[in-house]
């Protein structure tokens, strides 16, 4: 049986892993390669790296870091942030990343999804999106897409955008709820479920994980395929094994041997 994936997320700023609440108040957590090895050894099914400052500073992605991670771990990982062209994607993939995650770039230029899917296969193309609850009448799902780390509201309906991105060639969609991000109060089931029901590609729940039960909840209540974990394991309060144990005990298929 295909297992539900648990994906630690590493936000990288200036070569260090950081974590903030609602994209603010970032604190230093450690070296990206050391943390990748620790989580890979600890049962992570995949990793995702966001070079969170790359776009704001107009700085290209740190290929050296991507190559160092690829050399050190044997599980798939995705890289996002600082990518502005298919040529950038190619450098990241040739350095050993399995997937490319695009977010603000795809809103500005949706065609990049199709170009990336054509060049590398849709399994390489991940759409990251940051939806927020919105009263904008144009957003019928009740959720609006924000970009550039919650700095800009786009007026785009989150479910419509997910559907369109999947049609363009996105092979996976990460739904990072702005409302839940960093709260550790649990995933936002409503928007995750709406998008998982609307698209035929895997959907990854993101934002809000604080306890192992939150993973049980999102896998039981929505059709999502994977979930992102960050602060609750970065802080040392919980381990990946505790999350996997809780899922296994709840009868949710997970990889228990690594």
């Amino acid at each position: 049986m295909l297992t539900k994936r648990i994906i630690p997320c590493l936000d990288v700023r200036g070569g260090r892993v950081t974590k903030g609440v609602k994209f603010k108040n970032n604190v230093d957590l450690g070296d990206p390669v050391e943390m990748a090895v620790k989580y890979s050894d600890g049962g992570a099914d995949e990793l995702v790296f966001y070079d969170i400052t790359a776009s704001a500073e107009h700085r290209p992605i740190d290929i050296g870091m991507v190559a160092a991670v690829a050399k050190s771990i044997r599980i798939p990982f995705a890289v996002g942030g600082g990518i502005s062209s298919v040529a950038d994607m190619e450098r990241v993939i040739l350095a050993g990343a399995e997937k490319i995650s695009v977010n603000s770039l795809a809103v500005r230029n949706p065609g990049i999804i199709a170009e990336g899917a054509k060049a590398f296969g849709r399994q390489c193309m991940v759409l990251g999106m940051d939806p927020v609850r919105s009263a904008n009448p144009a957003c019928k799902s009740g959720y609006e897409v924000t970009t550039r780390g919650f700095r800009e509201w786009t007026g785009m309906d989150a479910v419509e955008w997910a559907r369109r991105a999947a049609e363009l060639g996105a092979g996976e969609i990460v739904v990072n709820s702005v409302d839940a991000d960093g709260t550790r109060a649990g995933f936002e089931h409503e928007i995750t479920g709406k998008i998982a029901a609307a698209v035929e590609v895997p959907v990854v729940a993101s934002g809000g994980a604080g306890r192992p039960e939150h993973f049980v909840g999102v896998f039981k209540e929505t059709a999502c395929d994977a979930a992102i974990v960050a602060g609750m394991i970065h802080s040392g309060e919980w381990t990946l094994a505790q999350i996997k144990d809780a899922l296994f005990a709840a009868g949710i298929p997970v990889r228990m041997m690594w």
Partner: peptide, 25 residues
């Protein structure tokens, strides 16, 4: 219903021929 294509992720393999498998379960 319930199965997305492509299959992406970790799935269980049952080896029916274990010969030569030393390290792998």
């Amino acid at each position: 219903p319930g199965f997305k294509v492509p299959e992406i992720g970790w799935n269980q393999v049952d080896f029916t021929d274990g010969e030569n498998l030393g390290g792998a379960p």
